[in-house]
Design a protein around this nucleic acid. Sequence first.
DNA 1: GGTACTCACTAAACCGCATTAGTAGCGGCA
DNA 2: TGCCGCTACTAATGCGGTTTAGTGAGTACC
Lengths: 356, 356
Amino acid sequence: MTASGEAARRPPARRPTIKDIARRAGVSESAVSFALNGRPGVSDRTRTRIRRVAQELGWQANSAARALSGDRADCIGLVLARPARTLGVESFFLQLVSGIQEVFSAHRTALLLQVVPDLAAECALYRRWWAERRVDGVLVVNPRTEDPRPRLLGSLGLPAVVVGGLATPGPDSAPPPLPTVWADDAKAMARILDHLHGLGHRRIVHVAGLPELAHTARRIRSLRSEAARRGLDTRQVRSVTTDYSDAEGAEATRRLLDTAEPPTAIIYDNDVMAVAGASVAAERGIPVPRGLSIVAWDDSPLCRVTHPRLTALVRDTAAFGRLAAQELRAVLDGGPVRAVQGELPHLEERESTGAP
Amino acid sequence: MTASGEAARRPPARRPTIKDIARRAGVSESAVSFALNGRPGVSDRTRTRIRRVAQELGWQANSAARALSGDRADCIGLVLARPARTLGVESFFLQLVSGIQEVFSAHRTALLLQVVPDLAAECALYRRWWAERRVDGVLVVNPRTEDPRPRLLGSLGLPAVVVGGLATPGPDSAPPPLPTVWADDAKAMARILDHLHGLGHRRIVHVAGLPELAHTARRIRSLRSEAARRGLDTRQVRSVTTDYSDAEGAEATRRLLDTAEPPTAIIYDNDVMAVAGASVAAERGIPVPRGLSIVAWDDSPLCRVTHPRLTALVRDTAAFGRLAAQELRAVLDGGPVRAVQGELPHLEERESTGAP
DNA sequence: GGTACTCACTAAACCGCATTAGTAGCGGCA
DNA sequence: TGCCGCTACTAATGCGGTTTAGTGAGTACC
């Protein structure tokens, strides 16, 4: 159903160019360019006058023209390769984007965001952006254990920063390392185990996310080594993987609770699964934390609205986004390839964890 | 803490231009342009040959050059004016963005996303994008009851589509109407009231979102008129407003339950507040739905992980995004200013609603 | 056989800016 | 007086496309 209206399109105001400024200030276009870009070649008096005229006209450089002559796009890209199904359950991405923006908007650099169905589409998009010179660089999220992206971006020469840990290179020879910002999942996992082990838990299961993601692998590895270090039985302290959805989180919980020796504590890799797990416990009449302790990896309002409230690993995701953005800026400025570590998350102990 | 590495920057492959294609195909640059854009002026034989060469070289038009000469940016913008605090609690935006992308990526048009703190910053950004010719058009979200954006965008001549209902014009004279895609909140509210009233509820409160948003006003108005139509007491069927956060949702619920005649049903304007409300009921030992029925406006995994699961108004947000994107495309193609209606949401009846 | 017309293509201008290569004017200095 | 070097500018070129204005060859027509 539509209601038509008049197009009523008044001719839009013409956007001023440096030519307009030049004419109005009585100087050449080059003088204007020098003046506005802080280049030498004009007197202070003239520079001030030109700047005032530009201000009056509300001039802003045409981004296309600037990109064409300057060989920059003043734009960076972020691709989200995700099945639509799991999109937007977590607050993670908007927070991250928000942090990224904070840094780049200060540099008049825009953020191109694209959601694609899978990794192949993501790679194709990088190729296109590169060929089109759409972006000056990209932020790569969700690094995988076998990741084709570092190799591709390296060969294209498209500056990139990997967000969330080092992507493990693919099988064929050594790809160029990409600059990275990462969180210390090992220490975070150790922190959680300290907490649970200290409370007396010996049967602890980690309901992890997608197995192909690098950070999932890191967390699983870390759980195993931390368990070993504490002399815990690795059949009773282990990880299972899911697709991050509430459905699989609940399903995994049911399966775990149905075993002969069910875990006394479960660590969920995101907030949604943790809440789903708590819900399964409630459905079975298992008291939390007495019958089952629950930890959520990543805090959110969700963790605070359940009963009991969920103990959660709190990260400042926006800060992580800022860090990633700063690193990409540094790389664009010709900085070295580095691996920068984000701040260590802390465990917010709430009522969902206690002695078994 | 950082670990340095070698810059190891191999000289990136040079990106091919039409000049390269022209040289290799033995024709002029104009011929290449004609051939690749489907313009007349080259024979079919030559056209095919040029296309093959372009393919071989992996050529893609430099977006800046095309934007400069074609006076388009092949890019649309979306600004999110939100305090960082309330960012990303709802799944709404990523879903919307995902739908928008689907349409625009098919047209090789990119999406520029920016998060800003407030409306003033949003307006400033529109001005800048316009002056910089960064975008061909924008999608305006969260229309307000008194909204400066239609007037601004109209005066700039920056094509725009308002997502989520007609923005009520500001006080000073009539601003140009903007094309819109909207959801019928009135019918949706009527549907919810049908359900609750049919179950026997007479004291129904609507915990709404931010009062300055146009859709909040529409829902409040609609609740009032629907209540009147059914002869319900408007002191017992009413709305209260919040900032959408779990905290205010919980707080509002507490206040409501503390009154002499507490509501027997509450309608929450988002999923997070609904879950928070359910949590407050649990904390007070009020059984849901026997002691309190709960409806969430917008479904999400959250509504399915609580106990009992929440009755929710289900909208296909990605589809709404697609619709908005299609409308903006139409406007960019010179279509008329219209108000297009999205599909009517449906009420998913779950266990959180029942007879009082 | 000359003119008109079409076809397939090339040359050149242009989009708005950055940058490089001049150039005019002037003071200093031998 | 002539030359140098500096300042403050202007002219011209290029970025990579699109588009307009030619241009030469071939064909149709009288």
